[in-house]
Nucleic acid binder design. Structure first.
Lengths: 116, 116
DNA sequence: TCCATATTCAACCATCTGGTTGACGTTTCC
DNA sequence: GGAAACGTCAACCAGATGGTTGAATATGGA
C-alpha cells in the first residue's frame, strides 16, 4: 500500500503520463494510437505505459497483435482518498504515528516523535 | 500549474516526505525536530524539506536560528482537485484536449487525437 | 568572547529516469 | 511464404534524485 502510493504518485508526476491518462478517459486505445500525438518514440511511450500499468492506473490486454490500454481509476482513487483523509486527521495519535512511520519508511521501533 | 502538478506529485512520491507531511499535520516543527525520527542525516531532511517547499506543500519561516516548517495544504488540495475532476470528465472535447496537451507537454499545434 | 546549536552548502557517489536507436518476436494479410 | 504492422527488448546516454560527509554560516547564551 505504501509502495502503491509511491508508484502512483511517481507515475502521476510526469506530464506525458498524465496526458496519456486523459486520453484513455475517452476510450481504450492501442499502444500505437496512444503514441501518435506525442513527439517521442514508440518505445518511450511503451515504457510510460508500463509505469502506468505497474502503478495500477491502467491495464493492458493483448488481442491479436494489438495491445489495448484501459484506464483503471481505482489506484487513482486510492491516492485521492489518501490525500483527502490527510487533511482530516485532527490530532495525531503518537503511537499510531510511530506504527505509521514504521510501515511507511521501514523505520525501527525506536522511532520517537520529537516534542511528543 | 502543470509544473505545479509535476512538483507536487513528485514530492508526494517519496515516503519520507509523506511522513514529514504527516508529522506537520500535528504542529509546526523546527528542521532538527522534523529530522529526529528519521534514520538519515539532517542535510538529507533539509533537502526533503526544500522539495516540499518548492512544491508549495509546506512553508518555512526562520525565527532566530530556528527555521519553522508549516504545512500548506493548498497545493495538496490542488492536486486532489485534479484527481477528483479527472474521473468526472464524461466525454472529451477534442479541441479542448489538444489545447490541454499543448499546455501539459508543450506539444505543437499539429497534435491530433488518434481515433478522434 | 567563546562555545554550542541550528541549518545549509559543496562535493561526491550510486541509482533511477526518460529518452534514443536498432534488433527482435508475433500476428495479420496478400 | 513473405512483407508489413504492432509492440517490446537491450544497450546506451544525459540528467535528476536521494543519500553521504565535512566545512561554513548564523544565532543564542554563558
Amino acid at each position: 500500500m505504501s509502495q502503491t502510493l509511491d508508484t502512483v504518485f511517481a507515475a502521476l508526476a510526469d506530464p506525458t503520463r498524465r496526458a496519456i491518462l486523459a486520453m484513455l478517459l475517452e476510450d481504450d486505445m492501442a499502444v500505437t494510437d496512444v503514441a501518435h500525438p506525442f513527439a517521442m518514440s514508440l518505445a518511450a511511450i511503451s515504457k510510460h505505459l508500463q509505469v502506468l500499468a505497474e502503478a495500477g492506473l491502467i491495464s493492458q490486454e493483448k488481442r491479436g497483435r494489438v495491445k489495448w490500454c484501459k484506464l483503471e481509476p481505482d489506484a487513482l482513487r486510492e491516492a485521492s482518498v489518501w490525500m483527502q483523509g490527510f487533511g482530516q486527521m485532527d490530532s495525531l495519535d503518537l503511537d499510531a504515528f510511530e506504527r505509521f512511520l514504521a510501515v511507511e519508511i521501514g523505520l525501527e521501533a525506536e522511532a520517537e516523535i520529537p516534542g511528543g
